[in-house]
Amino acid sequence: MFYLRKYGKYSAEFKEFVTKQIVLDGHKMTDVCQRLDIPYDTLQNREFTRRILLNTRQNLVM
């Protein structure tokens, strides 16, 4: 049985929330995906990855 997930655009606030969960709180991407019901491939998307890297670099500078 296949389950089709509804794909859509996520708001900027939601993207920021997800990246903070991963970068600041140190949660694993797989755990965040399961908890928020996001496809794992979405987090590997360029935009999410770019946000995660930017947040990581900003935290290292601070």
Rank of each mutant, 00 (worst) to 15 (best):
D37R: 11
Q58Y: 09
L43Y: 02
L43S: 01
R46P: 01
Q34H: 05
V18S: 00
K9G: 11
G26C: 02
K9F: 07
I52E: 02
R57L: 08
A12K: 08
K9V: 14
P39E: 06
L24A: 14
T56W: 04
V23K: 02
E47Y: 03
T19Y: 00
D41C: 07
R5M: 11
D37M: 05
E13L: 13
D41S: 12
Y40C: 06
M29H: 00
H27T: 03
E13G: 11
L24F: 06
L24N: 08
R35T: 08
D25M: 10
D31H: 10
C33Q: 02
R46A: 09
L43Q: 02
N55G: 05
Y40D: 00
M29Q: 06
L43N: 03
F17T: 11
A12F: 06
P39C: 14
I38K: 08
F14G: 03
D31N: 13
K9W: 14
S11D: 14
M29E: 05
Q34N: 09
Y3F: 03
K28P: 09
G26F: 00
D41A: 15
D25S: 13
V18I: 03
E16S: 15
K28E: 12
P39R: 04
R35D: 12
L60G: 12
I38F: 13
T56K: 11
T42W: 10
S11Y: 13
V18T: 02
L53R: 14
T49V: 06
P39H: 13
K9T: 07
L43D: 01
A12I: 15
R5Y: 10
Q21W: 02
